[in-house]
Each structure stands twice: as structure tokens, then as C-alpha cells.
Design a protein around this nucleic acid. Structure first.
Lengths: 340, 340
DNA sequence: CTAATTGAGTAAAACGTTTTACCGCTCCTA
DNA sequence: TAGGAGCGGTAAAACGTTTTACTCAATTAG
């Protein structure tokens, strides 16, 4: 099966130099001050000549620590999660911590496997950004190895976890208020099929804004669809049958689909419909018209998550805490005053 | 430092059940047919009660294999690489192989660290999709641990590697021919700053098409820019100063920037400019107008890469081979006949 | 001249598994 | 009733490190 010849071990280099294994280990780990310069030199040379690389597993086995954290995301194709990964990397790598990405995608059946094989064991901590993950899975991850863990993009009421969240209520209110201020009252809302806790909060924010504006919440204009551009296209098919004049998308990806759907119906944004997205992914600035959307402070999210995780790793007994980050409405060209 | 108490080992389980370590190991690995149902049951229960999880390192140390392969990508934000990851996952996971993503992003300085700590050691093989990676890095990865490796999106002339490539020459020719057939001759070409080998081939394809159409290659219309949407915007600033009537982008991401740039200049696609992308990322179907682009058979790429890697892993002495996959031009709404 | 110190190095335990080779018992078959 | 076959199980080696506790000689201090 394994045709490759055994790779060189520390014993080989010890033998090559004519010295003990201990010495080699110490020297190669920078703890060999007490050895003679001559010996040190010879060991280093031997390492090069023999192309010796310490075995990852052996090393892990003895010193139980690694400096790697994991980040679990549901879908690598969603630009929001891609930026989240990037932001975590930016925060962690300068600290000497190396994140490893676990993109769970469709493979929910395999999450157990991931947990068993990779996450617990190799990772010293975990950032979980899997809004779809069931409580069961979350608990399993946490309990399975008392792994320090930070939840993000995912609220949890149990109080058992550290979390970094955004102010969903405010976000929802900002969006709806903006449209209401522009004179829209018949506002369609495109949601995914299952509402996670944070989306419920956002929805509460919408409702609050309507209440404050003394406008009835247009519950007849709430639509459910997939979480990607295709979902936006679908939703438009139903929305054009109504008297809606504005559309709130659950995220920018869906908004992109909405752009497409409206365009196929020869409807103009923002003349016929105002459209609002969520996340402020890179692309939104490149759409025509530029998309009005809510900016998540994604750099801060990554930074906070890493910081909290490190805290948890150094002191696992610390109290659980959560931070709620602020959001901003980026008003661009996809929304405009309703003309009567 | 480490506040967590020692986690339970296989020995604890064995002791709890009152049985040997061997038995526990076998049973838990599904190789315990020969043990009594009663014992099996007790072991499973003990595993649950004690919350036992095999130690990753110990396991890796003894059976030198893992069933994990690595995939190295330059930039997780680029949808093409995101889909590549997805396609590799789709091909690998059903085979029981679990890919791990190494998104190198800006951290070229750290690639050494990645190699030492994670890639060689834990991974049984590597898919390298890092077109920017220097020959030096590629060689280092390969030599450092005689790691089976497959290159993709990256040609290498040394013949030392397995590769899965696409027919860049044909791709280039298809694009240019399509535009030439539509009557365009003043065709702008947007390239990144450094030309990798595969891009050179593609450029050769462009030139071939011009030659076959007896049209001079418009070398004065070759522009260089960043590899992302911002690059497209920049390029447009320069292109609008010329007499170009069509634009070939290096990839869809850049094409999106071109859309934006042209829109800012109140130019219409395809009336004022025909635009062609590359990659056929998901989004291209959702743009308005829908983008004419070249489809990379991304599912096949992932599948091939995994398959070749597995081959290499089972027989590392096998000859190096490369496969070249076919591409297709997806003609959509962003290109049209030049009106005189 | 003895005792303590330093310098350069080593032996062996430990980490937690998997795997190989065995063991003893009971039951069947010739 | 001897000799295999199952059955249910175990002991111990091996994987490649790091780390702890030594050893031995040479030098220095008193």
C-alpha cells in the first residue's frame, strides 16, 4: 500500500552525527545552548542533508498543544463566510495562531466525523460560524472535548458559550426605517426557510420600525426562499405579482438574485423597486446600481472572536461572555424615494 | 496554562469495563466481531459514559496514514477557488477522504510554517491550486516530505508533477474568435500583472484567433490590472479612452468590475462594449446582462485531481501524468454583433 | 588535595493508540 | 479420545517525539 520508503526520523540524524537523540531534539528546538557549537553545526547540517522533518503526530502526542484553531463555516461559496475566514486569519496569524478551515457545506452527515478526527484533538479552540447548526451539534462540539469555543453569526440562549454577535435588532430597524422614511410601506421581505435566532431578532427590528412609523407590518409580503442568488430570483417571481415597491433581502447574495429577477421582468432598480441587502460583501459596490446594504463589521468580528478564543484558551474557567457589535446602513443607489 | 484535566484515554475505558485495551480498540474500530455482544455493548456504553474520544495524535502516530488531503488555494475570496474547494470536497468525501483547506491569502511568509506544521505530516496528499506560487515553494512542498501532489490551475514544465489543466490555448482562441466573428477587431484584453504559464498559453490562443482571422493583434489594447473587481474598474478607465469595442477579462471577477466601470461611464453592455469573462462562476448567470464567459469544468477538475492524488498515494512510483480538460464558451447576453 | 561546579552529553520514561502474535477454553469430528 | 476449529480474549511491541533525571570528566574554589 505505502510504497514510500520510511521517512527519516530523529534517530537517523542522531546516528548520522554520532550523538544521542536527546541532543538532536534539544538542538533542533532551540534549547541546545549547552551543546558545543561544533555539535550544533553538525546537527543542523545533518538535518539538511537527510531532509529531516519532525513527525507531526509524535510531536503532538508528547506535547499536547498545537497552535492551531479551527473555524467551521457552513458554505465556502458564500462571500460573507469567505470574508469571515479572511478576517479571522488576519487576526490570528500575527499572533502565531494558525486557523484551519472546516467548510461543512452540504456534508452535515459528516460533521461527526470532522469532530472526531480533526477538530477535537488537533485544534486548541474553535470558532463556530454555522448558523444552521443544531443545538445538538453545537453541544456535541463543545462537550466532546471541552474545547474552547466561540460562536458567531449564531445566537444561543443557553449562556453556555462565548459569542460575538451583531446588533440584529438595530440592523432590522435601520433597514425598515430607511425604506419607510423614503415613503415605502408595501415592503417585501425575503427570508430563508428556517429562521435562526439572530434572524428572528432582525425581524423584530423590522417590526419595531413599522410600529414606530405607525404602519402595519406587511405580513402578506413575507416570502421564503433559498439562501443564495437563486432564492432571489424565485422570490421575485412571487413579488412582482404583488403591490410591493421595495424588497428587503436576507443577504447580499439573495439581493443579487433579486437584481437578476427584476431585470428579467424589465423592472428597474430603484425606479420600480428599492432593494436592500445585508452583509456588505465586496461585490455590492460593483453592482449596478450599487446596493444599499447593512455593513457587518466583519474585521472586528474576526478580531473579537480570536481574542475571546485566546482568552478562553489561557483560562478555560473564565465566565462566558458575549459582545454585540454595531452595524451601519450603507445607503447607496438601489433605494430611492417612492414616487406617487 | 492548560486548565483542563486530562482527558479520558482508552485505558480508562478498558478499566471501566474490566477488559483489555486491545479489546476496546478493536471494538471501537469496528473490528471486534469476535467479541461477545455483551462486551461490545459494555464498551460502547463506557465510551458514552466516560465521553471517550481517541487521541488524534496517538492514532496518527501508530498508523501513519490519515485520510485527509490538503488543498492549497491563494485566495478564499475568489469564487473560482471557492468552487474548486467545493468540487474537491464533492469528489473526496464520498471516498472517505477529507480535504482540509489551506487558504494562503496574503500570508506567503507563513507558507513555510504551514508546510512544517500541518501539511507534511497530517496530509496524505496535496492539491496545489496556487497559480502564484513560485517554483521554489512548489518544490519545497514536494520535496519536503515526498508528499503526493497534484497541481492544478498552474502549469509546470519540469515534468516532475501530476497536473490537471484546462485547454488554455483553445479557451483563448474560442473567446477571440467569438468576438472576431461578431465583427469586433478592436478588442481590449485585461490581464493581471504577472503572466503565469497558463495565462501565456491563453494569450497564445488569442493571437492564434487573430491570425486565423487575418486581423492584427491589437497589442495597444492590452491592459494590466489587479485580479479582482477593482482591477476591472481601473482597466475601464483606460479602455474608454481608446477605440475598443470589446473587452476580454482575465476572469469573471474582473469582468464584474468592468461592468461597474462601464456603468459608471454610462456605457451599455453589449451595445457599446461586448464583454467576455472567464471561469463561469455562479454569479455570471445573475448579472445583467448575463455574462458571456468560458466554462471551466470545475467539477471535473476536482474529480480528476482527487483521483490522480489517490492514485499517487497508492503508488507513489507511478509515472507523472497530466490531463488537459476541455472548455466551453458560454455565449450569453454580454456580447453582440458590432454595428457599423 | 578535596569538594563543588560546570560543560557536554546520555538513558529511559512517557504520550495513547493500533497491531501482531499469542493463549486457553469449549465444542465438534473422525 | 486426540486433534482441530472456533470463540473470546490478552500481552507486548511499535510508532517518533520531548522531557526528566541522571552521568562522567574537567575545571575551579577553598
Amino acid at each position: 500500500m505505502n510504497g514510500a520508503s520510511k521517512s527519516t526520523t530523529i534517530r537517523d540524524v542522531a546516528q548520522y552525527v554520532g550523538i544521542s537523540v536527546t541532543a538532536v531534539s534539544q538542538i533542533l528546538n532551540g534549547k541546545g545552548d549547552r551543546f558545543s557549537d561544533e555539535t550544533i553545526r553538525k546537527v543542523q547540517e545533518a538535518q539538511r542533508v537527510l531532509n529531516y522533518h519532525p513527525n507531526f503526530y509524535a510531536r503532538g502526542l508528547v506535547g499536547q498543544r498545537s497552535n492551531s484553531i479551527g473555524i467551521v463555516i457552513p458554505n465556502i461559496m458564500n462571500p460573507f463566510f469567505a470574508s469571515l475566514v479572511l478576517s479571522v486569519e488576519n487576526a490570528a496569524i500575527p499572533k502565531g495562531i494558525f486557523p484551519q478551515v472546516f467548510s461543512v457545506n452540504g456534508f452535515h452527515e459528516n460533521i461527526d466525523y470532522f469532530i472526531e478526527q480533526f477538530i477535537s484533538g488537533t485544534q486548541k479552540g474553535l470558532i463556530l460560524a454555522a448558523p444552521g447548526a443544531s443545538q445538538e451539534i453545537v453541544d456535541k462540539l463543545a462537550i466532546s472535548n471541552s474545547l474552547p469555543m466561540v460562536l458567531t453569526d449564531q445566537a444561543d440562549l443557553s449562556g453556555n458559550y462565548d459569542m460575538v454577535l451583531i446588533d440584529e435588532l438595530k440592523a432590522g430597524e435601520l433597514i425598515a426605517s430607511h425604506l419607510l422614511d423614503l415613503g415605502h410601506t408595501r415592503i417585501a421581505i425575503v427570508l430563508p426557510f428556517g429562521l435562526t435566532l439572530n434572524l428572528k431578532h432582525r425581524f423584530d427590528g423590522y417590526k419595531l420600525a413599522f410600529k414606530l412609523h405607525h404602519v402595519a407590518v406587511p405580513l402578506d409580503l413575507v416570502f421564503q426562499s433559498n439562501f443564495d442568488p437563486s432564492g432571489g430570483v424565485d422570490a421575485v417571481e412571487r413579488i412582482v405579482e404583488t403591490d410591493a415597491t421595495a424588497i428587503i433581502a436576507i443577504n447580499d447574495d439573495v439581493a443579487i438574485g433579486i437584481y437578476r429577477g427584476l431585470s428579467a421582468h424589465h423592472k428597474s432598480i430603484p425606479d420600480d423597486y428599492s432593494v436592500v441587502g445585508f452583509d456588505n460583501i465586496n461585490l455590492t459596490n460593483y453592482l449596478t446600481p450599487r446596493l444599499t446594504t447593512v455593513e457587518q463589521p466583519i474585521d472586528k468580528i474576526g478580531e473579537q472572536a480570536v481574542q475571546m478564543l485566546v482568552g478562553k484558551m489561557t483560562d478555560p474557567t473564565a465566565e462566558h461572555q458575549s459582545v454585540i457589535l454595531d452595524v451601519k446602513l450603507k445607503i447607496r443607489d438601489s433605494t430611492k424615494k417612492l414616487e406617487m
